[in-house]
Amino acid sequence: MQRSAIGWWLLLLPAFLLMTVFYIAPILQVLTISVTEPELGFGNYERLLTNMGVQRVIGTTLRIGLVTTVIALLLGYALAYVITLATPRAQRWWLLGVLLPLWISVLVRAFAWVTLLRRQGLVNQGLQAAGIIEAPLALVWNEFGIVIGMVHYMVPYAVLPILASMREIDPRLLAAARGLGASRRTAFLRVFLPLSAPGLVAAGVLVFIFSLGFYITPAILGGGKTLMAAEWIKLQILDIIRWGLGTMLATVMVVAILVTLGIFSRIVDLRRMFGARA
């Protein structure tokens, strides 16, 4: 290795040590608990196959994650499409609008949704005043509420990778498709959509992985009735003090996510997904 290259790696060393000592090591330690408590072995992992409660939590988590991903992708794609076609000036405002929620605390946003969606909330009162519904709808403290809160959080993460891939599409290709006989719809379906597909896939994986680990939003908007993985783990560890079971599910999620990313990085260039030119 060249001297200058070593110099660069040395610059990374403090950050690397910090991550190892305060992040990776504790995580590994926690993960090992899953095979040491209450006794050495894979007893905790057996519960994956036998325990209905664990299976239900995993099922709920996957279902909510999937629904959130699909809705966030649809909204994100539409937004990214509008932004791509907008004038540069309008693009800046659109982007600001998309990114603004990222700077507001998840906690604040979750409580804001609760005030909006609860039985005496603005939405229910508005619908009742308009005479559309008679009794207030159950919009929150169930899966519906969780999905709303999570989609709201996830849309910016869906927009950015999709936008990056849309910006690489040569607008002349669409004109070419029209000129060769394709209607607007066909040009979109046959040319624009396939060319933006990598961004769509990237956004999908990103949003789905994020969704699996959501804690605050489901905890607040789910009202304790709908349990997702992160909240269940917290319950096991802090309330029931079954460290082994909680860390088992945590381990399963970490491995599942790493495997997903591993497969995915072979299909799509991860660096391009965030807008870096290959």
Binding site: R172, L173, A175, A176, A177, G179, V191, L195
Partner: peptide, 8 residues
């Protein structure tokens, strides 16, 4: 088209 605009 200019640059041919072939579908990549």
């Amino acid at each position: 088209f200019q640059g041919y605009a072939l579908f990549p």
